[in-house]
Amino acid sequence: MHRGAFTPGRAFVYAVVCLIAAAYLLPFAVVALNSLRTAEEIAQTSMIGWPQSWAFGNYAIAWDKFCVAQTCSGIQPYMANSALVTIPATIISTLLGAVAGYAVSLWRFPGDRWIYGIITIGIFLPQQMRLLPWTIVLRETALTNTLTGLVLIHTIQGLSFTTLFCRNYYVAIPQELMRAARIDGAGFFRIFWRIVLPLSPPILIVTVIWQFTHIWNEFLYGVTFTTGQQQPVTAALISLTAAVADVPQHGVQSAAVMIAALPTLLVYLFGGRYFVRGLTAGAVK
C-alpha cells in the first residue's frame, strides 16, 4: 500500500478529508472575505459571499478611524497595548522560567521537588481563583488599569508553563556533563551560560511561541483590570464588534478581527511545528 495508489476507497478518504478541511477553513475565510466587502453589500446579501468590489479601505478605517465607545481611534492603540504587554511578558517569563527550570532539574537542593510540584499547580488552577488577589495586588501597587500591571500578571503566571517546559527539557541533560563541569570549577551561572543555554534553542522557541500566543489571546485579565484606552486588543474587540451603530459595520469589524488575529496566525504559520510541540508538551505533563 504505497503512497498514491488510487482506489475508490482512497478517493473517498480524500473527499472526506477535503470536505472537513473546507469546513475548518470556512469561518475564518468568511471573516477574511467580509473584511474586503462593503457594509452595504453584506447587508444586501449575507455574511457569506465573494466580494463584488474590493473594499480595501475597510482596513484603513479599522486601523485608526473606527469608533468604539466615543473614541474614534480604530484598533491601532489596542494593538499597541497588546504588543506592549505581550512582548515584555513573554521575554521575561521565558528567561526566568529557563533559569528556574535549570535550577530544579540540574541543581538538587532541599525542597526542589516540592517547589516544582507547587509551581505546576499553576497549570490547572483556574484564573477565577486568582482574580480577587490580583485585584488587591494591583491596587496596592497602583498598577490597576496599567499595561505594567498586565505584564506583571502574565509574567508571574506564565512561570508555571515556562518552568515546566524548560525543566522537562533540561532533565535530559546527562548528570555526568554537570559533574564534569563542576569538577572544572564552573558555577551555577557559568554552567548555565556555557552548557545549558547552547542546548536550549528548541525549547526556548517552543516556550516563546506558547507564551506569545497565550498572552496575546488572553481576555479575562485584560477585560477585568483595564478599561478604555488601556485595554488589550482582545478586550477592545468585544466592545468594537458589539458596538451597535446606526448602520451595521460588518466589513470594517471583520477587518478589525483580521488585524487582531494576524500576529498569532503569523507565529503559527512560521513556527507551527514548535507551536504544536508546545501543545503536546503541556498535555503530556
Binding site: 478541511a21 475548518y24 469561518p27 474587540l237 478581527v257 487582531a260 488575529a261 507551536f275
Partner: peptide, 16 residues
Amino acid sequence: IFLYPLALSFVVTGTA
C-alpha cells in the same frame, strides 16, 4: 488547516 483555529483567540472564534 485542522490546527490553525488553536492559534486564534476565543474572542476571534466567538466573533466569527
